[in-house]
């Protein structure tokens, strides 16, 4: 078997007839001397879950931040198949980016301190999203925050507690509620269960799976835990040193890894 550091030819699943929701082409990003992303391309189809695995520092979080328009690459093109947003999303101005992020993309960070206002109430954290999108009715804010928290299987009797007072699993549920409150077309999850104990992790994954089933949300999930990726992802992208070294259907990657690095990864797990 030949191992190269270049990406294997990108093959869209054969039966896919709809165009991809997310298309990223040739994204590169350096931070000083560090090459965080090198010519990364990715596609995600509507309703699909793309899993991204890779060792620490391989650029997974950086890629997700690009998808959330928090950062701009040195080169690259990013499109979402939204009727009102043709063109490269990296060319949008700050204002348009912020609106797009707030209303069409949801994100759950590994570290809840990044994603949540810890000193505000949990329901308020969700309500803030709705406020940014222009909701100005108190009753509607309250009702929609409650719905989103409920959908994330957050215990509603604690909806006005501050995240700082909550357990890690509950904090992730608040982040999730905030992310899905505006019914985004794309949900980005950066190590959503890392740092949770195994039983809580399983519960959060259950919630994510259920959401995915009920709402057919398109998701991109990053994890260094192959178990998580195996449970969640339809397709998997393997990253190493800022490059995509392999990608394919989840089963294919797990059963028949092609790239050296992926083989090591899969075997280490087994």
């Amino acid at each position: 078997m030949i191992a190269t550091e270049t990406a294997l030819a990108l093959q869209a699943p054969q039966l896919m007839t709809t165009p991809p929701l997310l298309t990223m082409t040739g994204v590169s990003r350096r931070y000083g001397d560090v090459v965080a992303l090198q010519d990364v391309s990715a596609m995600v189809y509507p309703g699909e879950v793309l899993g991204i695995v890779g060792e620490s520092g391989s650029g997974k979080s950086t890629l997700l931040r690009m998808m959330n328009l928090e950062d701009t690459p040195d080169t690259g093109d990013y499109r979402l198949a939204l009727p009102d947003l043709p063109g490269n999303l990296f060319d949008l101005d700050r204002f348009a980016r912020r609106m797009l992020c707030a209303t069409r993309i949801g994100i759950v960070y590994q570290n809840p301190h990044v994603g949540l206002l810890m000193q505000h109430t949990s329901s308020g954290n969700v309500a803030e999203r709705l406020l940014i999108a222009g909701e100005r009715s108190f009753a509607a804010l309250r009702g929609r925050a409650r719905e989103a928290l409920d959908a994330s299987e957050f215990p509603l009797e604690r909806m006005d507690a501050r995240p700082i007072e909550l357990s890690g699993g509950m904090q992730q549920r608040v982040q999730l509620a905030k992310a899905i409150a505006l019914e985004p077309v794309l949900l980005l999850l950066d190590e959503p269960t890392t740092g949770l104990d195994v039983s809580v992790q399983a519960l959060v994954l259950d919630t994510l799976k259920r959401l995915q089933r009920d709402r057919a949300i398109t998701m991109v999930i990053v994890s260094h835990d192959l178990g998580v990726i195996r449970t969640m992802a339809d397709r998997v992208m393997v990253m190493r040193r800022g490059r995509v070294v392999e990608q394919g259907l989840a089963d294919q990657i797990f059963q028949d890894p092609q790239h050296d690095y992926t083989q090591q990864l899969v075997h280490a797990k087994l």
């Binding site: 912020r98 329901s123 308020g124 406020l131 940014i132």
Partner: peptide, 17 residues
């Protein structure tokens, strides 16, 4: 600059709650 005033409304929301 971004007219990002969500958190001011958030304070009012929490006062009412």
């Amino acid at each position: 600059a971004d007219a990002d005033y969500g958190r001011l409304w958030l304070i009012l929301y929490e006062q009412i709650v």
